[in-house]
Design a protein around this nucleic acid. Sequence first.
DNA 1: CTGTAAGCGAGACGGTACGTCGAGTCTTTCC
DNA 2: GGAAAGACTCGACGTACCGTCTCGCTTACAG
Lengths: 207, 207, 207, 207
Amino acid sequence: MTEPHAPRRGRKRSEQSRLAILTATFELTRDEGYRALTVEGIAARAGVGKQTVYRWWPTKADVLLEALATKAELHVSVADRGSFRADLEQFLRDSFALLGVPGVAQALRSLMAEAQVDSQFASRFREGFLDRRRAALAELLQRARRRGDAPPVADELVADVVFGVIWYRVLATDRPWGEADLVALRDLLTSTFTNPDPSSRIGSTHV
Amino acid sequence: MTEPHAPRRGRKRSEQSRLAILTATFELTRDEGYRALTVEGIAARAGVGKQTVYRWWPTKADVLLEALATKAELHVSVADRGSFRADLEQFLRDSFALLGVPGVAQALRSLMAEAQVDSQFASRFREGFLDRRRAALAELLQRARRRGDAPPVADELVADVVFGVIWYRVLATDRPWGEADLVALRDLLTSTFTNPDPSSRIGSTHV
Amino acid sequence: MTEPHAPRRGRKRSEQSRLAILTATFELTRDEGYRALTVEGIAARAGVGKQTVYRWWPTKADVLLEALATKAELHVSVADRGSFRADLEQFLRDSFALLGVPGVAQALRSLMAEAQVDSQFASRFREGFLDRRRAALAELLQRARRRGDAPPVADELVADVVFGVIWYRVLATDRPWGEADLVALRDLLTSTFTNPDPSSRIGSTHV
Amino acid sequence: MTEPHAPRRGRKRSEQSRLAILTATFELTRDEGYRALTVEGIAARAGVGKQTVYRWWPTKADVLLEALATKAELHVSVADRGSFRADLEQFLRDSFALLGVPGVAQALRSLMAEAQVDSQFASRFREGFLDRRRAALAELLQRARRRGDAPPVADELVADVVFGVIWYRVLATDRPWGEADLVALRDLLTSTFTNPDPSSRIGSTHV
DNA sequence: CTGTAAGCGAGACGGTACGTCGAGTCTTTCC
DNA sequence: GGAAAGACTCGACGTACCGTCTCGCTTACAG
């Protein structure tokens, strides 16, 4: 897939510079905030020319996106834990763990913010982050469908609820995640339901 | 409540300038995007000095926040519609209607983005928008609690799910809202549940 | 000459405000420098509205010009001291005394600077200050002409030399005036001359 | 003498921009006046970013000072013309020629004005202009001293008179220079004198 | 083993917008 | 109608970064 394009002449890309840039970007965002993140600042802290940044990344947000991928284990386990309930719990636990890594929540908020304002970056952010996470959850749901214990609700809604709640708390509230929150969300999506339709309710064995 | 402070000396604030600024801000954001929104551009389009903007608002995001409040009916009905199910449906319907007004979704995305990057504005955004909406939903939930038809789930989780789903779709996806989405979300939160306790699951009639 | 214009209706000009403005202007120039002198600063320090300044003076330089006239005795004595030599000495002595008053040299430099840059003010500065001084010196010269002890040089040149030297030292050098300077200048203009005609030079006893 | 400081890395200063800035500055001052001279205007007319001006000059007055040096031949001839009388005449003639170049008098008045108001610039103005001219005249005087035909007056006073008269006429009067003015000033400083000391006056053959 | 083609750190370039200051005017209320 | 207060439009300030463009230098493949 990655074109093997002729073994290129000239000097090779400096891996050292690449890492210095990613590290500088991640740390600056974490310590000073995304507002204070500038290409000039990145280059200065990384001991690199500005051009070296512009040569390899279109915007500073893209640098941060790659820095995030490099600095934090974004991979989410999709190992089968026997039930959707358990799979979902693990998914949430992994997600919260990721958000707990210093700098990661800050980076994610910044990237989401940038995506609101730069639609080209928005596409790259979805492809490079949002869609991957959604695909992971989709895999869990497909397995549950096969297994027969998927929630009686459209997969898309499940995903919207899971990611909606996570992102909303990150973006709009200060409340930290607790075990209770995790459990409550898991239960909301894996409890058994009956439709409270008046007619169908008659004879219902539960309450 | 609002201090009647002595009838102030000096020239009065120009209501005309204020409105021109709010209108210019809203339209520029809607038409050119928040990235292209500058205080200089606002002042120019409003036919106003930059200083007049800076005199009354700390940042352009605050101007947009007030513009939004002025341009769109942010008030959400909390009229009692008999059941939480109906109340929630109306709440969602009102919310989607608001998002459908041209420029509103754009403005909200921009404000949320700004809040990620400017923590002082974040507080004002919460106070001036997020918390008000949350309070409206809380009122519906309290009424439901009294009435006895509240979801068997913490109010906070209900709010996180409702706002989480709404915001997530606005910020992270392109999918437009449809009637089906509304119904599915309403049903998720108002269906009756049973806890899928493994033991009780045996002989369960549903699934 | 001063039109007796009808006894004017309405409130009379406040002498207190006028003096407060002149004092504030003189002191601000002396203490902070002309660069830092602003109409806003004057009004604030004088406890006066900006409009009150603009109502009575066209520019801040005009305020300073009037402040100077009010704060320092600009009048130069033209009393007859018997000889042009003595008259000139007194004129120089008066001038240096004026320049020694704290704030006066600063004010004069500022006014001269302003005159270079605002030609309308330049006219008022000449009329209100430069020409008056020149007229005083002219009076001394006329008296000398009558008396017969005027320098064998055009009056205009004498004035150019006198004022030229004074202003040049104020504007372009840091050297303070000393008694020796005064005497040297006086002597230059009141010594007797012989034309250094080459032929007459032979056998000249001086050099 | 000029530090050979390491052959500098990075892009070189653009000589084209430098000249465009100097030309724009000189012409704007000449045509619109110093009051109307702004860094923004200079940059715009020179087709240059403002930063490029600020990078190389601390104030717009410094730009004008350099522009003057570039646009006008400030060099004053110190060639030996046989006598101080002839040397001085040439010096004055050169000075008046310089002042006759369109824009030069305007520039000099502006620089002198700025120096009154910005003491840091005042130092640079003295070093870069005033002191050089004074040094040139000092050279003529030293030669005259050696030759034996220097005026019987302190060198400093001669310089004060020469520059005082020139500057005073430029700054404070509208009278243009004529041949008669030149001659009169030359003669004042090169005529032979006798001190009108009362005692020595007795028997004096001249008057 | 030598050209030649990138990549590199450095830093100047033309620009845009920032947030501030002050100018000079206008408006309001009080005296 | 003068005066204090203060909001108004306007223009320039000096700064920060943007993204681009040379520089001189280093690296590494190709002839």
